[in-house]
Design a binder for these strands. Structure first.
Lengths: 199, 199, 199, 199
DNA sequence: TCCTAAGCGAGACGGTACGTCTAGTCTTATT
DNA sequence: AATAAGACTAGACGTACCGTCTCGCTTAGGA
């Protein structure tokens, strides 16, 4: 991920023609669109170059693999599970179910599903960056979930033995796995919520 | 998967040289070994043919895609999460934790991890066969988990509101997702178990 | 040069799809035309494939380098100095001058010049095949010249000390060098002839 | 070849930073060494820049093509057939044979052969500058040969009908052609000498 | 002493071609 | 027919150069 840009900052030399920001954006946009249209597996450097109108070498110069392009898409915020804030109506049960519904609704959009699936493929593809990509994918709403679970726990809506961070991970994992890989409704997550929050 | 073989049975004509079973097995074995060694993404028809010593066309004749070869590997029982029976010592908490430990232990074997990851990639790759591949992957131990959860529930070790089938799905999903994609320890699953089974 | 075809003959197995003669010819024709149009240096596997309508790999399968394609063009007789028989009117002086004139006339055709220059470039380029290419280039008329010189010598029109084979080489070398590399009229060759044959 | 420098003289403005003579020399030296090591075909602007430590643009600024760099190498005297004076012992036959031996001996040095071959390639490559490059290559010893031949002719060691200039050209052409392109011993030239100078 | 013009190292950019690999399809002889 | 063999078109891979284009820095007059 822009390791070279980082190096530049280190040496603060800034020699030579500066990197073109517009080219960088057009590459990321082309990659995003191609993933949405045909999926991560079909994505190729060639196709990105053709679509974005740049030379193939320009992509190789900045990204070592498809997985790292996907990582940059995440950093750009162009590729995440939609940022769904967890509501707080006072009832943990109701709020988690509502959040779950919103997440699954947005995953019904083929483009969003394709982009998220790309993240999973990228992580599965490239074990060296798996944790990075995983953190990028789940990070944004992990914290929101943890906070909401902890608030519910302090009100006695979640038993003491439950670890909010672990539960948040399990909920996200279950949703993504069921929805994107199994291609099924994430009924399990909803049931888990009920099992956890039942009095 | 072997659609043509099926057609044969229908028309019961069976003219010409019969399909070679030994070739079929050597192809599947070659595919299995190549997945274990280099992963699903790197798997190619070419490499399978070379390794198994058959002609490339023979593979194309019987399998339309890499994903369907993986499906056959599952049918052959050469490619699944290891068949871990859920123990029953009387304590649901202890038994689930034990099962979880065994599963994660077997996933630490790189070959097993690669084969399982291949199933996930194949399902993610080929949406048309996603549910089939998903069922093949999780089927073997899904039922065992459901049974054990139901027994615990009847003994009051799991609250009434929890649906054993949904919980089984969530546990499996969480384990696979965390272990294979995130490349992390499936701490979440363990915590979920504690949260669910705490008195 | 068609080493693999030769191997085929050796093992006389002839398994698999046989090589397409029409493709082979279209490749050689495309190469010949491209050399005539743009020169040997500009010739590329890419361009040959595009022009002949074949896949690039097909060319790599049969020829390891541009130089060897040129060698095959020679074997095909599509690429030589034009086959000019040395006349025999009885006067060595007159006949050699006549032959020289015909050769230089045909080299004034840009296509012929380009093809012959390609042979020289190929030999200069690829030291490993230099002698082969040289023999291919000069072979066809070398013998004719030697014969004519020997006949003249036996009639006393060429001094005894002159070696016909060496003189033939020198004449050809001088013509090609002057015409193709220096881009000048091969006045030298004509003068050498006069010097040699003067009484 | 340094067209811009010439322009400078015309406008006698000479503003801005003057051309660096040290950079110019390091570029020519790098080109010379690379030709000696890997040949003219493999020579690239890129490699010259890397080896000489200058920017690529600096080379493009002053030379339009590889062939013109070679031309400058000749002007610098860094790239010619070795300057072999033609001896004069009184016997034309002996002297020419001696000269021929020296020339071929120096061409046995791979670096000298590579540099000379580069000149031929450059001339063959770039028809626009062919005569220039040819003149640069042969010029230095052409005159020496002509002089020696004329002296021999005046002593009756060479028949009257022979044109010294044309014979010099033929000798040089034969040597270069046989040695550098055919990769063979220039036996022909030696035989031509004997044929010409025999009583 | 500043200003302006040009040379220079560096390196990004759109390209073309390389040589290799794989995908699918096809055409042989053999089994 | 199925099989091994392998040629064929197609196209992606990652690399190397091409020729062009900015950049910041340097080095010289001339103002």
């Amino acid at each position: 991920m822009r390791v070279r840009t980082y190096t530049r900052h280190m040496t603060n030399a800034a020699r030579g023609r500066p990197r073109s920001e517009s080219v960088r954006r057009s590459i990321l946009e082309a990659a995003r669109d191609l993933i949405a249209e045909r999926g991560y597996q079909q994505l190729s450097f060639q196709a990105i170059a053709t679509r974005s109108g740049c030379g193939r070498q320009t992509i190789y110069r900045w990204w070592a693999s498809k997985a790292l392009i996907v990582a940059d898409l995440v950093l750009e915020g162009q590729l995440t599970l939609p940022q769904q804030p967890v509501p707080d109506t006072g009832s943990l049960d109701v709020d988690l179910t509502e959040w779950l519904e919103r997440i699954t609704a947005s995953l019904r959009d083929p483009a969003v599903a394709a982009l998220t699936r790309a993240l999973i493929s990228a992580a599965s593809d490239d074990q060296g960056h798996a944790q990075l990509l995983y953190a990028m994918t789940t990070g944004p709403y992990h914290q929101g979930l943890v906070d909401r679970l902890a608030r519910g726990q302090s009100l006695g809506q979640l038993r003491e033995a439950a670890d909010p961070a672990a539960l948040a991970d399990a909920l996200i994992g279950t949703v993504l796995f069921r929805t994107l890989i199994a291609g099924a409704q994430p009924a399990g997550a909803s049931a888990v919520i009920r099992a956890l929050t039942a009095p």
